[in-house]
Design a protein around this nucleic acid. Structure first.
Length: 689
DNA sequence: TTAACTGGAAAA
DNA sequence: TTTCCAGTTAAC
């Protein structure tokens, strides 16, 4: 106060810089109060989605647009606004002439960037997903819009002229393996938007078909978004697309923030209209989206791990529905979720042409039943029935051979040799393991050594190792086929490619199977691929106590079998009477999905029924359940202990009550947030329990 | 962060 | 009944 007046009077200052700054600030403040900022002449009200992190405030709030921001404050831009005393981030989602709000409106503080990063179509999909997953728009926005990178935004736009769509003449021969395939293509090319479940034929040609579907959509002037499980698939598809649709981009989740934002802007600005990527790409703002594709939707990596845990298939479904685009759910093995789309009439199916499959490969089962194990010396010593041994030996002479062996840790690692009951620790019931071939069995939990183990069920003293890692399998196979070059892929040493030559024996865990051919090279013909594929220990893949074991096992087997060359043989080692193995032998993805769905229906399990989980401290979950208005016909299971001092409740409803359940859960989240209750983690449609 | 609102107790 | 205060709630 005194120092200010001193300055006004022009007398000497003690701290000149500081005093001058204070005076300046005071004058600015005064000026602001005297002349309130001018408001934009047209549509002065901005609708803003404010990121408060609070579920009950997850909606738009109105702000005034200062005249200075009139041109930049367009729908989709990031803004800063004052919200209950704090500066918070938000997205401007609309402009209008007036507000419904009867209080005073605060002005926008700042338009953070002129880029309209939140496109209205993407917002529409987010609204839908927020309802479906009882989640907040804010959480979904974090998944949909990458963090801003100012430097990248200022980079000059490299304008590459878009390549004209390819002529239909180049599509000959594609989609012959599926009933209704050509019709689907014609619909895409003609600008229509079919929704289809595609049973992709085995062989490396599936991505060639996919490429043609992309080209057909481009020919109608529309954009395409393809979501694949991992970066290897993205690279392979990108390679396939290079010929027909060179103008595409691969969005990489593992790229740095700058590259991610650069690619995002290229898509946003319409520089590229064909996008490939993993699940985080499912929100990419592709211009004039004509086709959304999810490849291998049964792969668990399509499940988002951040709230509200949307599945990429559901994100693409929302995108296709709100943008009126086509949707293709494609895989070698049909998921039960895809089957629901078929069953409910949402999607038409593109089933396999039986004769086409028969010309591509033959599948057999080598019975490793107890009976044949006793007769077959090979099976006893190396888990490899004679039939499999002979197939590998013969096929190695023609080309590379793939042996798929279940991943370590699928099941307890030691079991009774005779009755196969898992071996457990006498002290703590933990699973027994072998650290090395020469050490005695040791408990994986408490470390107790048990060198005098005997089976508690049958008294037998012999142990077998049902889960043999790819390391030991490769040793065994190396001994069985001394001339072969053994290549191992799995764990953290995944091999993408393997050379196309006879004598190469690949041992891989499910999902880590290398593709035959060179890294930057397309399959040269339908004859590229493994000469044979052997699936070991199939009973083990079916032994997991998981709701989706069967569909997951068939998916992993079919994906491995699909890497074969035309005319190859596939042999599964397992029980010939098992229905899932029979579906593999008949190559019947649709029938298996239908039977699995029927089983789930009779067991009231998803996706035939729909469920949601609520997790949290016992008190929080209890409060939540009191507040939750469950729809009629709902069953509440639990609470059951879940992790350290947390419990979980499962709410199950008939399929038709899914939306009602989601809406009750959304209401619950808003109520909880408004009352500041302890957090509860809610997951709608969790893939497994 | 803060203004507006609520409800209960004290003052009139 | 009015006034005051503390705690709660909405938040543009």
């Amino acid at each position: 106060m005194t120092s200010r007046s001193v300055t006004e009077e022009g007398q000497p200052e003690l701290v000149p810089g500081l005093v001058r700054a204070q005076v300046k600030a005071a004058r600015t403040r005064a000026a602001k109060q005297a002349a309130p900022t001018a408001i934009a002449p047209v549509d002065p009200v901005a609708r803003v989605l404010v990121d408060t992190g609070l579920a009950h405030l997850d909606r738009v709030f109105d702000y005034l647009v200062p005249a200075s921001m009139a041109d930049e404050a367009i729908p989709g831009v990031r803004v800063k606004v004052r919200f209950s005393g704090k500066d918070v981030d938000g997205f401007l989602v609309g402009r209008q002439a007036a507000s419904e709000h009867d209080g005073r409106l605060a002005p926008l503080r700042r338009v953070v960037s002129p880029e309209p990063v939140l496109q209205p179509q993407v917002l529409a999909a987010i609204e839908r997903l927020a309802d479906q997953y009882a989640g907040s728009r804010g959480d979904l926005l974090r998944l949909a819009v990458p963090p801003r990178h100012a430097t990248v935004e200022k980079e000059p736009v490299a304008h590459t002229p878009s390549t004209p769509p390819t002529a239909a003449a180049a599509w000959g021969g594609a989609w012959q393996g599926n009933e209704g395939g050509e019709e689907f293509l014609r619909a895409l090319a003609g600008g229509a938007s079919p929704v289809a479940v595609w049973d992709a034929p085995p062989g490396l040609q599936a991505f060639a078909d996919l490429t043609v579907a992309v080209a057909a959509t481009r020919a109608s002037g529309r954009g395409v978004l393809v979501v694949v499980p991992d970066a290897h698939d993205a690279d392979r598809l990108s390679l396939e697309l290079a010929g027909l649709v060179p103008d595409h981009v691969v969005l990489r989740a593992d790229a740095g923030p700058a590259q991610r934002y650069r690619d995002f802007l290229a898509v946003l600005r319409g520089d590229v209209q064909v996008v490939i990527g993993t699940r985080s790409a499912s929100f990419a703002p592709v211009r004039n989206l004509g086709l959304a594709v999810i490849w291998d939707d049964g792969d668990e990596v399509h499940q988002e791990l951040r709230a509200p845990y949307p599945h990429a298939r559901e994100v693409l479904r929302a995108r296709a529905a709100t943008e009126g685009s086509a949707l293709l759910v494609g895989a070698h093995a049909r998921s039960t979720d895809a089957q629901v789309l078929v069953r409910t009439g949402v999607a038409r199916e593109l089933p396999l042409v039986r004769t086409a499959v028969r010309s591509l490969l033959t599948v057999g089962v080598a019975g490793a039943s107890d009976h044949s194990l006793e007769r077959d010396v090979h099976a006893r010593t190396s888990r490899l029935p004679r039939e499999a041994f002979e197939l590998i030996r013969d096929a190695l002479a023609r080309g590379p051979v793939l042996v798929q062996t279940p991943r370590q840790g699928y099941a307890p690692s030691l079991a009774c040799e005779r009755c196969r009951v898992p071996a457990r620790c006498r002290a703590c019931e933990g699973p027994l393991r072998l650290a090395a071939a020469t050490t005695p069995p040791t408990c994986a939990w408490c470390g107790a050594v048990d060198d005098a183990w005997a089976c508690r069920t049958c008294g037998h003293r012999g142990l077998r190792a049902p889960v043999v890692g790819e390391g030991r399998t490769s040793e065994e196979l190396g001994r069985a086929f001394p001339g072969a070059r053994v290549r191992v892929s799995g764990g953290d040493a995944v091999r993408r490619r393997v050379e196309d030559r006879p004598g190469v024996l690949v041992v891989a865990t499910p999902g880590a199977e290398p593709v035959v051919g060179l890294e930057r090279q397309l399959p040269t013909s339908p004859d590229t691929g493994y000469a044979a594929v052997v699936l070991l220990d199939t009973w083990l893949a079916l032994a997991r106590p998981d709701l989706r074991v069967r569909e997951d096992a068939l998916r992993r087997w079919m994906n491995a079998a699909a890497l074969t060359a035309r005319g190859a043989r596939v042999l599964a080692v397992g029980d010939p009477a098992d229905p899932t193995l029979q579906a593999l032998v008949r190559w019947d993805p649709a029938g298996h999905a239908e039977r699995e769905l029927a089983d789930r229906a009779s067991a009231h399990m998803p996706p035939a029924s729909r469920l949601a989980t609520l997790e949290g401290t016992p008190g929080a979950v209890d409060d939540a359940m009191t507040l939750l208005a469950v729809p009629p016909g709902a069953e509440v299971l639990g609470p059951a202990p879940h992790g350290d001092d947390a419990v979980r409740v499962v709410v199950r409803v008939p399929w038709s009550s899914g939306p009602a359940l989601a809406s009750s859960l959304g209401e619950l989240q808003r109520l909880r947030s408004a009352r500041r209750l302890d957090p509860v983690r809610i997951q709608v449609d969790p893939p497994t329990l």
